[in-house]
């Protein structure tokens, strides 16, 4: 069906390196298991049988940030935990992306108190924000699809520090 049938035998397909690399990256994002609070449970539900996050390429949640390229900040980040989040983010190799899952990660949520960081984007750059309290698994999957669309359009030269430019 489609283009594969029209091509003669032993033929090649041309594409750009950028598209190929982006296609590889977006379809095999490996999240680091960074569940902090209630949204973590919905994240585990997304990985379980009904919602099945592995059909989007996220087969396993890596325990070590050094082996992951996506950080899903699921839950409230407190002032005590903030240095730990920053350190984990720094430990992740480039290219890396961050999804801020839930109202607490976006802006502190309902907890405007003395110990809660009002949004994880105060310490690390965030790519996709998912609202909800807690976030429904369908919403998290929608966020992942949006992130994949974002990765598709990335420019290899200027993307973060992992680009060719340097």
């Amino acid at each position: 069906m489609g283009i594969e049938e029209k091509l003669p035998d032993n033929s090649v397909i041309t594409t750009t390196i950028e598209k190929l690399v982006n296609w590889g990256r977006k379809n095999s994002l490996w999240p680091t298991g960074f569940g902090l609070a209630c949204c973590a449970i919905e994240m585990i539900s997304t990985a379980a049988a009904r919602f099945d996050i592995s059909r989007f390429g996220m087969e396993i949640f890596r325990s070590s940030p050094r082996q992951a390229d996506l950080m899903i900040v699921a839950g409230t980040v407190t002032n005590k935990m903030a240095p730990v989040v920053k350190r984990l983010y720094d430990q992740m190799p480039n290219p890396k992306w961050v999804i801020a899952m839930g109202a607490c990660a976006i802006s502190g949520g309902i907890f405007n108190t003395y110990s809660v960081l009002q949004g994880v984007d105060k310490i690390i750059p965030v790519d996709v924000y998912v609202p909800g309290c807690p976030v429904r698994p369908e919403a998290l999957l929608d966020a992942i699809v949006k992130l994949q669309k974002k990765i598709e359009t990335e420019n290899l030269r200027t993307k973060q520090d992992g680009g060719i430019e340097k």
Partner: peptide, 29 residues
């Protein structure tokens, strides 16, 4: 203390009815 959100103090600033939504977030399981 890495998840201490100060919910008890927050509840002192809400009416009894409004505080119900905060109670969900203690034991979220």
């Amino acid at each position: 203390g890495y998840l201490h959100r100060g919910i008890e103090k927050l509840m002192e600033n809400r009416t009894y009815h409004q505080a119900i939504t905060l109670t969900d977030r203690f034991d979220y399981l």
